[in-house]
Structure formats: structure tokens, C-alpha cells
């Protein structure tokens, strides 16, 4: 649905986007993460045919950026960083303007559909200046959907919203995914990306990594299992660390922390070994790293280990295994 090849944008001497190559599949929610000034908005603007690339190529919905801009604009919806609504005009009129500009066949019907869907129908004749941030954001999303685009670019859709409004917007994005739309989601909210996105890309002028949130965790931290023991001791830990499939085993706050690649098949062996050594096991669980930890490590290091490799902590020193 979206394909880029060495997509580059330079403003004077400033390189905003450097040789971005990625593919976003149809019906996918693709998270595009990166710090402020990383070039996320510039990328969205290029893909939505708002600005042209300096180098490289991008195909969106089968149309080439820079050559078929009009077709791209007809087939994509864009939610910009700020809602950008006409504050003095009513919600209904705001949408009607865009329905006409997108040449929607049934403007009144589409406007009503989305105003009702987003719970704004009752306040349709009120100027948007009287709306809360959440309502404005919902209206801006409705505006991006009026022409039923197959691809949606959402730039920070929940930024500045209260938890309830953010939840509403997130639920709506999930609903759009169920409808089979392709969503390119720029966000700083890592929890949101974790929950909504099929895959995420971490970007800082250039692409650092693309993968599913789960695989990224594994690539960055490996998989870790925590055993809560009533009577932990160093001998038990040494024996577990000696098992051939265990990368690392250590005691942390009285709990045994084991790093290994395939806990589903190896955990029973660890449990057996511990029981044989007289351990009393209270709980067993997987230690799950947040996407925030993954993200921070990526943007600070500017690099990612290859698939299957993992960073482990030994004596407080980070080493690549």
C-alpha cells in the first residue's frame, strides 16, 4: 500500500529524511516513532504529496509521489499535527467544505455519517471554537475520512488529549483497522503504538528499525523469565546458569531472572531442575519490557542488534551476546 525507496528530503543544508526505505502492507496499522525533529511530519507530508522528495521514490496506493499527486490526495486522508479547523464555523460546515473539496458524491450523507459516528451530531451547528480539544481532534479525524480513503496518515492523533478522549480516538483507530484501512500512525505515545500497531518503525532522520513491537522487545532485550522462589540460593542459580539453553541467570531482589530464547519449551526443564534442587516455586512469569524501554535504547544508541541477537547485562556492563 505504501512503498518507499531511498526517500530523502533535504531543506537547504539540513537533511530531514535520509534514504527511507520501507513497505506498509494493506490493512496494517504502521507506527512511525521518533523524537521531535526526527523527520516524521516531513515523511508524512511527502507521502501525502504535500511536499516533494529531494531524492528517492514513494508509491502510495499505487500512485507515485511527485508524478500522480492529485490521485494520491484523492485516495489518502491526512490528520495533521494540529486539527486546523475553522474555529468560527460550525462543525457541520467545516466538514461540508472538505466534502466538496474531495468531491464526495453524497456530501450531506457523509458529513452526517461521521458526525454521528464520532458523537458530534448534536453539536453540529456550534462553532468549533466552543469544542474541547478531544472534540476538535475527532472532527479533524472525521474530516480526514469523509472521502473514504484507503490510506490514512495520522500525525499525533492523541497528543494533548485527556485520557478519556485519547481512549475514544484510539478505539476509533482500532475500528478503522477492522474496516481494513491502512493506517500510518505517527505518535510519541509508545503505549498507544504498542496497543494499536501491527508493526512499528523507529526513525531519527533515518530508519533505525522496523518490526512488530513483540519482536523488537526480543531483539533488544531477549526473553526473560522470572521465578519467585521461597528459598533462593546461589547454588540453584549456578546450576540454572549452567544449562546449555540459558543465556544468563541471576538473582535480583530474591527472584531468579533467567534469559533464554525459547521459554515456552525450556521452562519445564528449568522448573524440574529447580524442584530437584529443593526450590519452592511460588510464581513463574515472563518479564515484559515496555516499548518505551525499547524505544529509548534505540534512539539513544542509534542502532539495533540483528534479528535473534540480544543485549544482556553482565556485572552492570551492557554487552552484545
Amino acid at each position: 500500500m505504501i512503498q518507499t525507496e531511498n526517500l530523502t528530503k533535504q531543506f537547504g543544508s539540513t537533511l530531514a529524511v535520509e534514504r527511507l526505505t520501507l513497505t506498509v502492507e494493506q490493512g496494517e496499522v504502521f507506527g512511525f516513532l521518533g523524537p521531535n525533529g526526527a523527520g516524521k511530519t516531513t515523511t508524512v507530508r511527502m507521502l501525502a504529496s504535500l511536499i516533494s522528495p529531494t531524492q528517492g521514490r514513494a508509491i502510495v496506493n499505487g500512485f507515485e509521489v511527485g508524478k500522480q499527486d492529485d490521485q494520491i490526495r484523492r485516495s489518502v486522508g491526512v490528520l495533521t499535527e494540529t486539527p486546523g479547523l475553522y474555529d468560527n464555523l460550525s462543525a457541520e460546515y467545516n466538514l461540508r467544505i472538505f466534502a466538496n473539496l474531495y468531491e464526495v458524491r453524497d456530501p450531506a450523507g457523509q458529513v452526517e455519517k461521521y458526525l454521528r459516528m464520532l458523537g458530534l451530531w448534536e453539536r453540529r451547528f456550534e462553532p468549533t471554537a466552543t469544542f474541547s480539544k478531544g472534540m476538535k481532534q475527532k472532527l479533524a479525524i472525521a474530516r480526514a475520512l469523509l472521502h473514504e480513503p484507503k490510506v490514512l496518515f495520522l500525525d499525533e492523533p492523541t497528543a494533548g488529549l485527556d485520557p478519556e478522549s485519547a481512549r475514544l480516538v484510539r478505539d476509533f483507530i482500532a475500528e478503522l483497522r477492522r474496516e481494513g484501512r491502512t493506517i500510518f500512525l505517527c505518535t510519541h505515545n509508545l503505549d498507544e503504538a504498542d496497543r494499536l500497531c501491527d508493526r512499528i518503525a523507529v526513525f531519527k532522520t533515518r530508519l533505525l528499525v522496523v518490526d512488530t513491537p513483540e519482536r523488537l522487545r526480543q531483539r533488544m532485550f531477549g526473553r526473560k523469565v522470572v521465578f519467585h522462589l521461597r528459598n533462593p540460593d546461589e547454588i540453584m542459580v549456578a546450576k540454572i546458569a549452567g544449562l546449555p539453553f540459558v543465556s544468563e541467570a541471576r538473582l535480583v531482589d530474591g527472584r531468579l531472572l533467567v534469559t533464554l530464547d525459547d521459554p515456552e519449551s525450556r521452562n519445564p526443564e528449568i522448573v524440574r531442575q529447580l524442584v530437584m534442587d529443593g526450590a519452592e516455586i511460588q510464581f513463574v512469569g515472563e518479564l515484559r519490557y515496555s516499548l518505551e524501554e525499547v524505544y529509548l535504547r534505540l534512539v539513544r544508541n542509534d542502532s539495533v542488534p540483528a534479528d535473534g541477537a540480544a543485549f544482556v547485562l553482565k556485572n552492570g556492563v551492557e554487552k552484545k551476546k
Binding site: 489518502v76 491526512v78 486546523g84 472538505f98 468531491e103 479533524a140
Partner: peptide, 14 residues
């Protein structure tokens, strides 16, 4: 000033 131009330019208007 109201940042309404970008959504407008994102439409297929010439």
C-alpha cells in the same frame, strides 16, 4: 495563523 492551510492543501485542490 490558525494552521488550516495544511488540511486544505492535502485535498485535491489545485
Amino acid at each position: 495563523t490558525s494552521r488550516t492551510l495544511e488540511p486544505l492543501l492535502a485535498t485535491p485542490i489545485t
